[in-house]
Design a binder for these strands. Structure first.
Lengths: 202, 202, 202, 202
DNA sequence: GATGAATGAGCATTCATTCAT
DNA sequence: TATGAATGAATGCTCATTCAT
């Protein structure tokens, strides 16, 4: 659930525990205060010394990348879990909604997902690939079920998720607006295509 | 085209020129390097001393707000100019596209538009109101012309623009993906609503 | 009443007026806000541009020196005016009290008097000499009248005035303490000397 | 002799040493160059990085307050040590003299003692109280011994000490003047009161 | 002369990173 | 290994001083 960064040497039990605590604290702090939050604050939240943070993550950037990997992994896990759900459309839109909903007020998710595309490190590349693969499955099944138009591909789907997270963050304090905005986007994903909606599902 | 912020006392010619240069430089620097770029860098880009930047904008936040106002004003100008265009649908989607296209790699636009909703200062509030009003006109005309579904309101439109800018930024180096993602969103805006999409083309 | 700094070239009427306004403003501002107050603030208070301040006083230090000279001149004027007062003791202690009372909360007076001893510039030296001379007269008359012990000399008198100003500033918000502290010091000035106080009148 | 400010968690040995070095350097630098001296200079004098200064004293104001507390503590220590001296008068005037003598050229002491009355922070309040208490003992004993007039109270005594420090600073380069000025003040403290010197000691 | 915009050195403060304990 | 003190480059901002208008 929280393996060593690069499948490197096995950490001692307490070291592994500390690494996990730092990672969790970083996720919470960066989400709440933005990525400009200090490393010191992460250490405090994790209940460890600042030295420990830097022992596990040699730079702040590395820490951010690790948080990103963590987030992507959680998403990939969820996407994979939905791969065999009976309701393909529900699985697809449900996952999309979950991604968007978890993008919290400070838009870490959007930032973090945006970076994902850039493949900051090899580590992110690996997990991002896993996420894309899982997404491809969800998308394909929804398309075969006629719940999503056929011309959508994974790259634009990811781009739309990133943007929708931002949309949700923007409308954070007006849930109604948020719902309506998402509904419009989802209609676009369902629409048979415009103009000339010959559709592939009919 | 770049008047004093809030109709303060008229600046000397050289002062106005410098203010404009700083504002332009700030727009460029923050767009290129993000809002964390230093004020020094803005000064260097503008070719003025650091003191000059702070003379015109007493805090960095004020400078950011001024850039934001500038951006919003340009958008509002464009929206207003399109208010009487013969092709209401083209005006609406054209404006939307322009907004998105001008969101550059580092997503200043998104940040900046996001702030707009928060009405950081009185100055931003005023211009944001202007933008919303102009947007309302474009939207209404497109809806009357049957080019945009009738249940869309300005708030979600703004939220979608913010998100679409982010989407575009994410897909910055793949224009094809960008176009397809936007097409999907635009279809959602055109769709008569879902469920029950018997299609508007029949 | 406010002649040119160094008996230099005669200033134009408006220039002289501006110089006086700046000097007055500087006295007020430095007294109220301390000598760390900005030159800009002095200019604002005087209702002139910052350039005008620096035209008349080439550095901030020069401005402070000019304020000092102004203060010393006012004190010297008062001391000279008291030189022929019928009540020599009243004149002496009255003057001492006035000096102390005019030392306002921010202790500009103390600072300024302290500097006076250092003879910052030739100008201060000149006026400080005048003040010392006037003080010598007051002191001598009070001693001859038997109101002040005979072994007091001008240097220690000045030092005591500087200190008493500080004492008054310290006790600024407790007038009672201030009065009692001064009374003690005055008793010391009257006392025939200790030990061996065979009387001061011989 | 230089414990943590307010009984916080015990610092590591090296940290305590550095804190003391910074405090000492600050005392020296502020005394020599005035309180406007830069924190950089304090760091340089202490032989530590600027970050170290701010780690121990989060603001320059806090550093000044700490120097003040340090000074007050030293004074209080001395006053307490003199509380049982056989010669009550000698103890009183000796302490007064020491206070004045240690007020160095730039009058940090005066500034610092002046602040003491204002009770800048809780820390200063505590130590200032201690000093006042110790002073009260010295004063009372000297009064009982007939060495100091009976109507002197601690508040005016403090005020006079502050002023006398300034007097001494003013006369710094003329020890003779300094001695004579102090002698006059001390006579005032001994005098049975004026006018109407029925005295309480006769 | 008067004005105030421009300048840039200087300051307090923060924070990622290193290293002695 | 964990800790947290030390470091110093970098940042936002101020202000005395200069100079073009």
């Amino acid at each position: 659930m929280m393996p060593e960064p690069e499948a490197g040497k096995p950490l001692r039990a307490d070291a592994r525990r500390n690494r996990a605590r730092v990672l969790e604290a970083a996720g919470a702090v960066f989400a709440a205060r933005g990525v400009a939050a200090s490393t010191e604050e992460v250490a405090r939240e994790a209940g460890v010394g600042i030295g420990t943070v830097f022992r596990h993550f040699p730079t702040k950037e590395a820490l951010l990348a690790a948080v990103l990997v963590d987030v992507l992994r959680a998403l990939a896990d969820q996407a994979e879990a939905l791969a065999t759900a009976p309701d393909a459309g529900g699985a697809f839109f449900g996952f999309f909604t979950r991604v968007v909903e978890r993008s919290n007020t400070k838009n870490l998710y959007a930032d973090v997902l945006a970076e994902a595309g850039v493949d900051v490190t090899a580590a992110t590349a690996v997990i991002a690939r896993r996420l894309r693969a899982a997404l491809a499955v969800l998308l394909d099944r929804a398309q075969r079920a006629g719940e999503v138009r056929g011309d959508v591909r994974v790259p634009e789907l990811l781009a739309l998720m990133v943007g929708a997270s931002r949309t949700a963050g923007y409308a954070a304090n007006d849930p109604d607006v948020r719902v309506r905005a998402l509904a419009i986007l989802f209609d676009g994903l369902r629409a048979p295509g415009y103009p000339g909606a010959e559709g592939r599902s009919q």
